[in-house]
């Protein structure tokens, strides 16, 4: 688990990364039926290649949340919406939210106050809890899905992940952060 405090805001974040997830379908069904026990942001790791990308979206979501300007129902859905570059909420939730057949999962929880932590992650996800690590994310990111989600110019679909050098990754990160921060502007 990665615990992050964003200095400007009173809330803090807890972030988990799971592999070999067995119950994605179940999580998704419970999430869609609006169960209180599933008040998390369940993110599809296929379109995430860096912690900075995740946190950049969290920053934007918390900024909008704390100024009463969120466009979705909760802070957790807002984080998923903020990961995208489009103003279409359904579109972003589909691309960045949990996939029914996914076997990897990133889970974020926004904690309003430290003492309010009242959940056990293992009761929700059945899988292997791993450290969230950029190398691991990069190894598994899906460029085709990334391209569909962010519409990079030039297109990512023609690049191979294996050929990506450090400079390519950092340029991709800069482009992604630009898109996240400037969505809707």
């Amino acid at each position: 688990m990665l615990s992050v405090k964003i200095p400007q805001f009173q809330q803090s974040l807890q972030i988990y990364y799971f592999e070999n997830v067995e119950n994605s379908t179940e999580i998704r069904t419970k999430l869609l039926s609006g169960q209180d026990s599933h008040n998390f942001a369940f993110v599809n790791p296929d379109v995430i290649f860096s912690k900075e990308q995740l946190l950049s979206a969290c920053y934007r979501a918390l900024l909008d949340y704390n100024s009463g300007k969120i466009r979705t129902r909760s802070i957790h859905s807002e984080i998923i919406f903020c990961l995208g570059s489009s103003g279409n909420i359904v579109d972003s939730l589909t691309r960045f939210g949990i996939k029914e057949d996914g076997n990897r999962l990133i889970i974020l929880k926004v904690i309003e106050k430290e003492e309010d932590v009242e959940y056990t992650i293992d009761e929700i996800v059945k899988g292997d809890n791993k450290d969230l690590d950029d190398a691991l994310l990069r190894e598994n990111v899906d460029f085709k899905q990334m391209q569909k989600a962010y519409k990079f110019q030039p297109s990512l679909s023609n690049s191979a992940r294996e050929d990506f050098k450090e400079t390519d990754w950092s340029l991709l990160l800069r482009k992604t952060v630009d898109l996240i921060q400037l969505r809707g502007c």
Binding site: K69, R174, L182, C185
Partner: peptide, 27 residues
């Protein structure tokens, strides 16, 4: 927003060195 957009535009022209955008609170 106009200034942040320009930073974005420059990210996409890698030959031009410019500071990267980190966060934006336009309001």
């Amino acid at each position: 927003i106009a200034e942040a957009r320009l930073l974005q535009r420059l990210t996409n022209i890698p030959e031009i060195q410019s500071p990267g955008l980190i966060a934006l609170d336009a309001r």
